[in-house]
Design a protein around this nucleic acid. Structure first.
Length: 561
RNA sequence: GCUGAUGUAGUGUAGUGGCCAAUCAUGCCGGCCUUUCACGCCGGCGACUCGGAUUCGAAUUCCGACAUCAGCACCA
């Protein structure tokens, strides 16, 4: 068959040559060992935790090596595209400290544009380029058109299925039968093509696979290690009937032209590498290095691991924003599961930024880990505990502006007051670790605001209401706010007066001898003033609330008994 | 079904033939400290999927089984 005639028939409008295209994508001038990585999502509108996870790998690898990290939008499936998705993606990743050096970016007009000379970075804009290489493959007899309709394909598949059933029944001729079914696609004549083209029929372009699945190709994945994968024998689609490339074809061409050195993608692509090895070989391209990252998993209702899916809480990055995780918390958590030695490093370097950590490919796990909310919150509490009151105030109010406007109004009404509250237990060697997320702060500090103050906890019935009232009355009468010691001495006196132990050691030695202890007196005051059994240091709390409001609350509480 | 990947305490892991009756973190339990809580400190609980093989010796190598995950589209 005259393949160059066939190529002309299929791609009459393509005049450029691969050489002309290659000339527009010169080798990158980068230092020795610099890695070029990319994030190549399809713009489906939401950013997945797994996406941030993968993105961190690419970003770290590129930036730690003096390389380039770029963004390419894989919008070859127009059905799934959601407007504004690219912008959302860039903004979200930016929140987590992920910045692209090159690639698709959002211009001042809000439109997606190119930043860099290796574009366009949107696959939908690269149609001409793919067709040049497609034509070349056809001319070399490595790809062929397929005019088979969906229905015909289904019929072919049915034959294959039947053959499979037979093969399990050890019928002798099944293998041949099985092969012929899909292989029939390859059998066509130039006349068939000419007739179809003349009739205006659409075709898909298929690769002419020369692999033998009985043979294994050695393949080294940087995360999974040395693998042996069966050669590809499937005539997979390169160009869809609308002329748009499939992922496989676009991957080969784009990553070659854009000089990607390390392809980082989810392990769901691992079964496709045979196809990609074949494509790169057919095209004469150098195969990049691959890192197939393990997936972040979730337990389903049967207790089985499964991929963290769209609907699971924690999959969508908007969840984190809404719940109020500081971005650093998520980054740090991701790093703990990305590189097992990160936690160790963190303990040795408590004050450094995570980007100072030396990220290593060899420390990445080959197996998928379970998403652990408890661990995330632990990491988060640590991160938040190290922030200054100022930082907490800024992030908290920014969150509240969006998700709890009433609360944000209260905080902003008197920033100094809010910061005084947020300073409690902050700084020093043993900072309080009260909050993991901004949405829970209100529960902790709400009582500082009269608008939010309610008594939620009750004093156990084992205490006489009369004693409580007396204690609170004495407290109100003798309140000394000059300093913490003087303040607490008063409480002790009250305890003694009412038959409660003022000395904890004495009390512990013989609890039966007392109605309770100074701890219980404090508890009465705490419940009266904060409405809760637990709170930060009471004297500090009262100092912030102030004398008048404290006394007011004590009086009201006492009356309610 | 076929193909591939993965399998160390509840969770995330260290571990690449003897240093492993298995490391660290988190979790849970108990204690100390603290007027409460939180923090911190101390102590405890808890694991090499199973079966063969190689070896003086295996968590580590090989084979098999099992389990889990993924892929098998004109989706990425």
């Amino acid at each position: 068959m005259d393949y160059s005639h066939l190529a002309g028939l299929l791609f009459p409008d393509v005049t450029a040559t691969p050489e002309q295209i290659e000339a527009k994508y010169p080798a990158r001038q980068l230092p020795e060992g610099a890695k070029v990585t990319r994030f190549a999502p399809s713009p489906t509108g939401f950013v997945h935790l797994g996406g941030v996870y993968q993105t961190m790998v690419g970003e770290r690898l590129a930036h730690q090596s003096g390389g380039v990290f770029y963004l390419r939008i894989e919008d070859t499936d127009s059905k799934r595209e959601i407007p504004g998705a690219a912008e959302n993606l860039i903004n979200t990743l930016s929140r987590y400290g992920i910045k692209f050096d090159e690639g698709a970016t959002v211009g001042e007009d809000g439109q997606v544009t190119d930043n860099g000379i290796y574009g366009p970075y949107k696959q939908s804009l690269r149609g001409d380029i793919y067709h040049v290489y497609a034509k070349k493959l056809v001319a070399e007899g490595k790809a062929y058109p397929c005019f088979t309709t969906d229905e015909e394909l289904k019929a072919l598949e049915a034959i294959d299925k039947k053959a499979e059933v037979k093969s399990r029944e050890w019928t002798e001729n099944t293998e041949a039968e099985q092969k012929t079914a899909m292989r029939r696609l390859r059998e066509f004549t130039m006349e068939d093509v000419e007739r179809n083209i003349a009739a205006g029929n659409k075709f898909v372009l298929r690769i002419l696979a020369d692999g033998d699945p009985e043979k294994k190709t050695p393949f080294n994945d940087l995360i999974k290690g040395k693998l042996e994968i069966p050669e590809n024998d499937e005539d997979f689609v390169l160009l869809k009937s609308d002329g748009i490339p499939t992922y496989h074809f676009a991957h080969a061409i784009d990553d070659h032209l854009m000089h990607t050195t390390h392809v980082i993608r989810g392990e769901e692509w691992l079964p496709s590498v045979a196809k990609h090895i074949m494509l790169f070989r057919y095209l004469g391209f150098k195969l990049p290095k691959y890192l197939h990252t393990a997936q972040i998993m979730q337990l389903d209702e049967n207790g089985n691991k499964k991929k963290l899916s769209k609907r699971d809480l924690g999959a969508n990055m908007n969840d984190y924003t809404r719940i109020g995780y500081a971005p650093e918390c998520v980054s740090e958590y991701l790093l703990t599961i990305l590189n097992s030695n990160f936690e160790e490093w963190r303990m040795q370097n408590p004050d450094k930024h995570w980007s100072d950590f030396k990220f290593g490919i060899n420390k990445m796990s080959a197996s998928g880990c379970l998403f652990d909310h408890t661990k995330l919150n632990d990491v988060s509490k640590n991160v938040v505990s190290k922030m200054t009151a100022e930082q907490v105030f800024d992030q908290l109010t920014e969150w509240a502006d969006e998700y709890d406007k009433d609360f944000s109004a209260l905080l902003r009404r008197d920033p100094d007051y809010a910061k005084a509250i947020l300073s409690i237990g902050r700084g020093g060697k043993k900072p309080r670790k009260d909050f993991a997320v901004w949405s829970e702060v209100k529960d902790f500090i709400g009582f500082f605001y009269d608008e939010l103050f309610t008594v939620t906890d009750t004093i156990p019935d084992s205490f006489e209401r009369d004693d409580i009232k007396k204690a609170l009355a004495l407290f109100a009468d003798t309140l000394d706010m000059s300093d913490a010691n003087a303040w607490f001495e008063r409480i002790k006196v009250i305890a003694d007066d009412l038959g409660f132990a003022s000395d904890m050691k004495q009390y512990k030695a013989d609890p039966a001898a007392f109605k309770g202890s100074v701890a219980d007196i404090s508890m009465f005051i705490r419940v009266a003033v904060t409405g809760k059994m637990n709170s930060p240091d009471l004297f500090t709390v009262i100092s912030i609330i102030g004398r008048e409001r404290t006394l007011d609350r004590v009086r009201k509480f006492s009356e309610s008994l």
